[in-house]
Design a protein around this nucleic acid. Sequence first.
DNA 1: TCTATATATAAGTGAATTATTATATAAGCA
DNA 2: TGCTTATATAATAATTCACTTATATATAGA
Lengths: 114, 114
Amino acid sequence: MKASTVEIDKSATILKLLGDKTRLTMVKILDTNDCCVCEFVEIFQASQPAISQHVRKLKDVGIVREKRRGQWIIYSLNRESEYFPMIQSLLDHLPNQDFKLKELEEQGLRISCE
Amino acid sequence: MKASTVEIDKSATILKLLGDKTRLTMVKILDTNDCCVCEFVEIFQASQPAISQHVRKLKDVGIVREKRRGQWIIYSLNRESEYFPMIQSLLDHLPNQDFKLKELEEQGLRISCE
DNA sequence: TCTATATATAAGTGAATTATTATATAAGCA
DNA sequence: TGCTTATATAATAATTCACTTATATATAGA
């Protein structure tokens, strides 16, 4: 079976976005869990605006989606994106990052968004 | 079968490198053909130093290899690189770029390096 | 309605990136 | 040896990027 292909220019744009440690980890986490900004802030020990700006870039190209839930905005991987198949095969080569969410839970910080 | 994984930090570095239209196309071309700098100069209509700097970055992380052949230096994909499996699955999602080399041949510019 | 929490956005700054120009190195050949 | 071709490297200038600080928006709850 031949994989669907994505224009080189568009692919380069996506790879540049994923070529950042924070965003790449975000996407890997989102592959198995939906998350809100405040969780990412804890996970990456980064400022809220920094995290917001990262997710915005992912949202702008359609890699992630947001949905509001009360005061929180939950981000999830957009599996309908034309880039998803490429991203998925990429993520398969990355080590699981669920331990980061586990750590949050142990600190009782995951619950803040439930 | 589980894919071999590559640390997130290292992966981000590789993806950043591939997140450039010129380098991404280079790697896709190298997936099916070895090439020298002068061919890339023609293909991308870029300056020789610009091309040299791009291949150098790919070489520095071990994605490509060089071997001298007379006055030319031939670049090839390093299939032994720890990043190769990830890169390979990426390249599967990109459209074939062989037409670029075909165009060179038609202009008689491919032969310059044989 | 007032306050707190979660998130977004705008402006500014410093660091990283890419191309250019100029120069160096190395091989081939007369 | 001197000239040409192929490539590399260094310095620099222009652009892009990611973070910070400050502020705005939106929801929840007293």
